[in-house]
Design a protein around this nucleic acid. Sequence first.
DNA 1: CGACAGTTTGTAAACGCTTGCAGTCGTCCC
DNA 2: GGGACGACTGCAAGCGTTTACAAACTGTCG
Lengths: 329, 329
Amino acid sequence: MPDRPPTLHDVAKHAAVSTATVSRVVNGGPVAEPTARVVRDAIRTLGYVPNPAARGLITGRSDVVGVLVPDLVGPLNAAIARGVEDVLEAHDKLATIMTDHRDEAREARRVATLVARRVDGLVLIGSHLDDAHLRDLVGDTPVVHVGAERPPGADGIPEVRIDNAAGIDAALGHLAALGHRDVAHLAGPRRDGAERRAAMHDLAPRHGLHLRAVVDTDFSEESGRAAGATLLAEGDATAVLCANDRVAAGLYAAARERGLSLPRDLSVVGFDDLPWSGYLDPPLTTVRQPGRALGRGAAARLFDPDAGGELAPVTPDLVPRGSTAPPPH
Amino acid sequence: MPDRPPTLHDVAKHAAVSTATVSRVVNGGPVAEPTARVVRDAIRTLGYVPNPAARGLITGRSDVVGVLVPDLVGPLNAAIARGVEDVLEAHDKLATIMTDHRDEAREARRVATLVARRVDGLVLIGSHLDDAHLRDLVGDTPVVHVGAERPPGADGIPEVRIDNAAGIDAALGHLAALGHRDVAHLAGPRRDGAERRAAMHDLAPRHGLHLRAVVDTDFSEESGRAAGATLLAEGDATAVLCANDRVAAGLYAAARERGLSLPRDLSVVGFDDLPWSGYLDPPLTTVRQPGRALGRGAAARLFDPDAGGELAPVTPDLVPRGSTAPPPH
DNA sequence: CGACAGTTTGTAAACGCTTGCAGTCGTCCC
DNA sequence: GGGACGACTGCAAGCGTTTACAAACTGTCG
């Protein structure tokens, strides 16, 4: 191994040409074939590898994009990161992943670090930062949000989201196919909750389903248990579509308390596909957040010049497991 | 936002000093307080942020370390990455995480990419590369392995591993405390398997436990089922310590087939704490791989100048769950 | 045969920063 | 009072690239 990695100069000297020529060979500039051959040989024998830092100094691009992930424990965020990496790899760029931005200040600091490093773009997953602050931090570095719960009208920074309606649609189709006619919904708050609820109202009829009841939750398991108890007391739905998996877990508890057996007496569908959803008893049929596709979409957005606003939402898919079955009777 | 981020020159002009002085202020060189104040003000009003690429060109350091992770799906690798990040953050460095190096060629390419970027160090998790090839790729970039299954004697590149004996010791202590006297072991292959098996032989007596049987597996669930069936046929142990969680899951199956109820008839302990281990029925008591500590150890190693070889192994901890209970009778 | 377009190559000036060296002061000591 | 010494500061030379710009050819065409 060379003590000091070879530089453009070394190659130039070795090939008896100017550094400009070597640079052109490396970056595909106009250079006569014989010369190019000599240079390529020199590069090979010296084991020359361009130093991206120097190039970046001039071009202004670092070929790195920063990814901020709240955590990597669940498969969803990991999958998103993975999707981002997919497209970065295709563009010969690198991802710098930072995790665990617990609070806004911490996250802001990290964004600043990344911007200082002149990243070519930023993918923010589940960000806390409001648009104004963010804009201020990043200057004109391209940014994309993934799955941040932001107000619907927040403009400026593009965002990749899933198509909640499509997810609900898939779940309803599944239930209809099993023979259900009467469904209920444990709804959630904020934007995702609202969209899912709206989709229930819109789409249930199209599957020939009757939406018998909607009870609110705050997305937590406990609220799911409480809302589930309320729902089950009415007892005229054979299937419940939950706003997320946590709520579904709460509904499991409520059903157990009532002495119901799942999925014999009641079918349950979740939303998100959390890591443990497949290990519930019975394993939860749920709508999976398509993490990798989300990540791909976000990264693609970074390179696409076309203007801001919303991106085409990504379609989630249904994961049929043991919590759904034909209705009783 | 400025069209072009301010440079050292801009600050120097604004503060009426030379760029050298500004640089010294930024990096804590010797500069008189009044001057420093003026410069600091200029930096603040201009919003100057040093460009690490330029610095790196000169100093040779990029303040980035590369982390190669096979995947981010399980909590273990994510935790390792997190641990690495912990210590990097303390050193004002950044982690560049690349995932999914499925095969050796792909991994080699990624290592090369990272080295070309002049990373300050490399943390390789579960690497496929053999030492010679790796050495060749990285030149004198510091490298640390985490949890690679390499031959025990492989020298040169430091490696962080867990203390398998300590893990076994904790598990045995747990079983002894519950009142068990007769234990068995479903052993695994390779280095980890061998160490765990050796620890069983060494340590069981010290806990007053009698190691009644050892059956081999290949770390797979199916081999665990088969080996488990063999083991249960003998039936003189009240607790089985499995080489890993997969094997333990196999043993669950074997026990079920035999009509045994866990943990009433048999206590089972796993090793690794896979994502689903807590969702088995009963939830598996297991020895958890301390991912974050592993990551911390690895990263710390990167900065420590002290010489190669093995690192102090990291102690795993026991996660008591539902698969262990006092022995029957 | 000279001008002209094209092609290929080299020259040199950036890019934003660090750092060895040398200069400029003001002090201290004998 | 003069030299030595320190403490600051500026000058300028890099670091490894890219990239206008210009130079040097090769043919081509009139």
